[in-house]
């Protein structure tokens, strides 16, 4: 199946990576999302059926829930495990010497002047 253009980009991503993206999308939004909304959000020519399959897999793992009282077919992330993880994370962060500081964190601290420069960059689209 030789995909072309933007379509092939999504298909090159592995099932595991797509699962992460769908889960991240659900967590990033305040409200439950339907597969079509997730599809639009992720973009990259991801097929609707693929989104559906991934949601089913995440549901089987207990990572997402079907939105019972909301719209039909909408999903939301399962909070319980994530709250336990957050507790464990904060526990690890609070215990000195900070073991998490030894990790590669995505970003580190900013000085006030750096903060100004970054704000300008985001506002001006000058990146």
């Amino acid at each position: 199946m030789a995909g072309t253009g933007s379509r092939s980009r999504a298909e090159r991503r592995s099932a595991g990576e797509l699962e992460s993206e769908v889960l991240a999308t659900l967590w990033a939004t305040e409200r439950p999302l339907t597969p079509a909304e997730i599809q639009a959000d992720i973009g990259g020519g991801l097929a609707y059926n693929t989104v559906h399959t991934i949601l089913k897999r995440l549901y089987d793992k207990g990572l997402v829930l079907r939105d019972a009282d909301g719209r039909r077919g909408a999903y939301r992330p399962a909070k319980n495990a994530a709250e336990l993880t957050a507790e464990a994370m904060h526990e690890a962060l609070d215990r000195g010497p900070d073991p998490i500081a030894a990790l590669q964190q995505f970003v580190t601290g900013l000085s006030p002047e750096e903060e100004r420069a970054l704000r300008e960059l985001l506002a001006g689209g000058g990146a």
Partner: peptide, 8 residues
């Protein structure tokens, strides 16, 4: 599962 989300 690759991604672990912490509700924080």
């Amino acid at each position: 599962t690759e991604l672990i989300v912490a509700a924080s």
